[in-house]
């Protein structure tokens, strides 16, 4: 390897042993390069597509909410109840993101709401292009609500803007109160935090105060609602939050 620049060209090992003046005309030669300053966001393309989605949604008076959680936190159950109890008045449709299967979209369709399933395959999150494709398929009516169930994962979805108007993070009491401390990026990105499965609080060791403290350290002032999507306890607050954001 060239001892001066680290390049692997040729067999010259000691760059400075040449006993002659030279203008870099020797054997291994350095191809001319130029440095180009880009100063570009890595996710610029996704962010631009997200802005297109945001504009399209606003133009059509559609509220899009991105729901994110670990697998099993109760996103689909919450959506089922929300559609059953609000669907007649709010016209809800759903974009379902999962790595595989159409099981969740089937559960949503069983409630009567239109749903489109996006399988991300190896991908661990939805991105703005996937939402654009989903909206094209779903073709939601003007002045309606699109609930986006992101892939169950508390890391990756936080990084990808979809063009949604609001982000909701759902944690269940069976997961442990330390979730905001472990995944601060996700909680920092949230407009609303839902603590689900509160009907199970008597049976699990979950410190609600520690959870609230963690959530507010990651995201001071974030609204946190406690509810049970199974029993319906506390869901009225979630419905009020949704209604308040309707265009």
């Amino acid at each position: 390897m060239c001892a001066t620049c680290g390049c692997s060209g040729g067999t010259i090992l000691e760059h400075h042993e040449h006993g002659h003046e030279h203008g870099h005309e020797h054997g291994h030669g350095h191809p001319e390069t130029r440095t180009v300053t880009l100063e570009q966001a890595v996710l610029a393309r996704n962010d631009a597509l997200a802005e297109l989605n945001r504009t399209w949604l606003a133009d059509h008076g559609i509220l899009a909410v991105n729901l994110m959680s670990s697998p099993g936190a109760g996103k689909t159950t919450l959506l089922e109840r929300t559609i059953r109890e609000l669907g007649a008045r709010l016209r809800v449709s759903v974009v379902e993101g999962d790595q595989e299967t159409v099981l969740d979209a089937d559960r949503i369709r069983a409630t009567g709401a239109p749903a489109v399933q996006i399988n991300t395959g190896a991908g661990c999150h939805l991105d703005a292009q996937m939402l654009a494709d989903g909206l094209r398929t779903l073709d939601p009516p003007e002045r309606s609500v699109v609930l986006i169930e992101n892939v169950g994962n508390l890391v990756c979805p936080a990084l990808f803007d979809l063009g949604e108007q609001a982000r909701v993070v759902i944690t269940s009491v069976t997961e442990g109160a330390e979730k905001p401390r472990k995944y601060p990026q996700m909680f920092r990105a949230a407009d609303l935090v839902l603590l689900n499965k509160t009907d199970l609080l008597p049976y699990v060791d979950f410190d609600v105060a520690a959870f609230l403290d963690g959530a507010r350290r990651a995201n001071p002032g974030v609204e946190v609602l406690q509810l049970s999507a199974t029993t319906g306890d506390g869901v009225a607050g979630w419905y009020d939050w949704l209604r308040a954001r309707l265009p």
């Binding site: 191809p31 001319e32 390069t33 130029r34 440095t35 180009v36 300053t37 880009l38 100063e39 570009q40 966001a41 890595v42 996710l43 990084l159 507010r216 350290r217 001071p220 002032g221």
Partner: peptide
Amino acid sequence: ANRELLAGEELKIREVEVLA
């Protein structure tokens, strides 16, 4: 806990070097 982030969340391509 009420703070504004000034640095640390960067995710960008600063520069590239290409063959001239």
